[in-house]
Design a protein around this nucleic acid. Structure first.
Lengths: 238, 238
DNA sequence: ACCTGAACACCGTTCAAGT
DNA sequence: ACCTGAACACCGTTCAAGT
C-alpha cells in the first residue's frame, strides 16, 4: 500500500505546531505573559488572541468572559503560594509571614492586586485552602469564631489594598513621575500658604517623603495582629 | 436710533439657555449625576457630553482628561465633609468618627471609593485640610511623627478599601446576586468534599454568612486605633 | 477662546458561517 | 466541538475647521 511508504521529507505531514491548540490553560498563561510585559490594562481579549494568532471570538470557547479570564490569572498566581504547616505557638508570627508572602507575590505580579480587589469572594480551591489555613492559625491562637473571621478579613483586605496601591506606581508607566509631580504640587501649595495654615501637614511632609513602604506595612501588621492576645479565650502558647 | 426701540415680543433676543454654558463645574456636576444614576463605569467622556448636548471633544477645553474629571468628582464629594474641631481628650474617638464619616460618604456615593483607590496622592486643598486635621488628632494623642504618618495612612487605606469593596456590591447591577452565587459555590464545594477537609472554613461558614459589615468595620477600627496608647510619648488625656 | 464633527485606534461580546 | 470574520455598540483622545 502506498501509505506504507515513508513520507517524502519535503512533505511535513506532522504539521509543525506553529499554532498550539487553544485551551483555557494556554489562554491564561498567555494572558499572564501579556500582563508581565505590559500590565493588566494590556490584557484585553483582542490582545491575548492576537498573541495566539487568532481572533478574540475564539477565546470565548474556553473562557466565559474577560473578568473570568482575569480571575483565572489570579488563581494561577495565587496557587503558587505554599502555606506552611501550623505551629500554634507561633501563630501570630505565622500569620504575619503569610501576609508578607501574599504581599510579595502581588508586588511581584503587578496587576494581580487589582484583580484581587475586584474579586468579591474568591471561590477557587486554592484560595479556599489558603483561607482555611489562616482560620486554622487564628483558631490555634484561641480566637473565637467571629473575631477570627473579622481578623482574617481585615488582614486580607489591608494586604490586598497595600499591594493595589503599590501596583499603581509600577503598573501604569508614568506612575513614579506622577507621584513625584503630586508631591511637588503639595510642596508648592504649602510654600504659597501662610505658615500658620496646615501646620501638621507641614511638619509631617519630610517624614512622609521619606516613606519606607516595608516598615509601614510591618507597622500596620503589628496593629492588626500584635494586639490579638486580648481576644484569645485560652492562652496562645499552652 | 433703531436700537432704542423695544425688541418685538416674537424675537427672543435673550436666547433661552436651552444649553447652559460649558464649564468645569457644570461638567463635574453632570458627571456626578451620571454616576449617581448609572455608576462610575457609565461616566465616560461621551456619556457626560451627551448629557450636555454636545460632543466629547468639547469637554477637553475644561478638563484635561477622563482621570482628571474623575478626580474632580472625588474632590467635590469629599469637600462636603465637615471635620470637627480637635478635642485632644477624645482624639481616638474623634479619629474613629472621622473614619466612619469618610466611609459613609463613600458608601453614599458608590464609585467615589474606586476613584479614591486609584488616586495615588490627593492634592486638592480640601483633602489636604482633611489630612492636616487627622495628623493634628494624632499629634494631640502624643504620637511621634513617624507613627502618626503610619497610622494616618493605615486608617485611610483601610477605610477606602472597605468602601471600595462595598461599592462592588452596589455599583455593578449584578453585585448582590453574584456574591450569593459565589457563597453558594463555596457551600457546594464544601458539601462535596470529605468532611475532614477545610475544617476551619467549614466551621466558619455560618459565621461569615451572617456578616455584619458595620460591626466588622468597628472591629478593625478598634484594632487600628484602640491600641495606639502604647505609642504615645505623653499621656493622651492630660 | 471656545466649540464642533470626523477620524484614529482601540474595546468586549455576539452571531452566523464554516470545518 | 471548535474556530473564524464580520458586525455591533461602545471607548478616550486628537485635530483641523469653524465661530
Amino acid at each position: 500500500m502506498a501509505t506504507d511508504l515513508p513520507e517524502p521529507p519535503w512533505r511535513r505531514t506532522t504539521s509543525r505546531p506553529v499554532k498550539r491548540q487553544l485551551s483555557t490553560e494556554l489562554i491564561v498563561s498567555t494572558a499572564l505573559d501579556v500582563m508581565a510585559k505590559d500590565g493588566l490594562d494590556a490584557v484585553s481579549m483582542r490582545r491575548v488572541a492576537q498573541q495566539l494568532d487568532t481572533g478574540a471570538a475564539s477565546l470565548y470557547a474556553h473562557v466565559r468572559n474577560k473578568s473570568e479570564l482575569h480571575e483565572l490569572m489570579y488563581d494561577q498566581i495565587m496557587s503558587t503560594i505554599e502555606v506552611p504547616e501550623i505551629d500554634p505557638a507561633r501563630w501570630q508570627e505565622q500569620l504575619k509571614e503569610l501576609a508578607r508572602t501574599l504581599t510579595k507575590v502581588m508586588l511581584d505580579n503587578p496587576g494581580v492586586a487589582r484583580i484581587a480587589m475586584h474579586t468579591l469572594i474568591p471561590t477557587s480551591p486554592q484560595m479556599l485552602m489558603g483561607m482555611d489555613r489562616i482560620l486554622g492559625l487564628l483558631a490555634a491562637g484561641g480566637l473565637p469564631a467571629k473575631v477570627a473571621s473579622y481578623v482574617a478579613d481585615a488582614v486580607a483586605l489591608y494586604t490586598t489594598a497595600i499591594a493595589y496601591e503599590a501596583s499603581l506606581w509600577s503598573d501604569a508607566e508614568g506612575g513614579v513621575e506622577e507621584a513625584q509631580r503630586r508631591m511637588g504640587q503639595i510642596d508648592d501649595y504649602l510654600s504659597a500658604l501662610p505658615p500658620d495654615q496646615l501646620v501638621h501637614l507641614r511638619a509631617m511632609a519630610p517624614v512622609m517623603a521619606a516613606d519606607d513602604a516595608a516598615e509601614r506595612f510591618e507597622f500596620a501588621l503589628d496593629l492588626l495582629i500584635g494586639g490579638l492576645d486580648r481576644y484569645a479565650q485560652k492562652p496562645a502558647t499552652d
